[in-house]
């Protein structure tokens, strides 16, 4: 029921093509960037919630662990 009305929109068939190209570029770029992230940064970020890597040794999480 909807299809007839959508297909009447001018240039509608370009939509999926644009989508595909856009998606492809987006993902290629994202994967490229992610692959090139440096290891030190990643390790640091991974541990950020856990705080084992933090320079601020005496932060709340540590205190928590001591008090428990």
């Amino acid at each position: 029921m909807l299809s007839d009305h959508f297909s009447g929109i001018e240039g509608i068939s370009l939509y999926p093509v644009i989508s595909l190209i856009f998606c492809f570029i987006f993902f290629a770029a994202a994967i490229y960037k992610v692959a090139r992230l440096d290891k030190k940064y990643l390790t640091r970020m991974e541990n950020l919630p856990l705080e084992t890597f933090s320079e601020n040794k005496n932060n709340s999480e540590m205190i928590n662990e001591v008090t428990q």
Partner: peptide, 14 residues
């Protein structure tokens, strides 16, 4: 919804 308006190949893409 949108893709159902399109030719088959485009639908598959959707």
């Amino acid at each position: 919804l949108l893709y159902s308006a399109l030719p088959d190949w485009a639908q598959s893409l959707g």
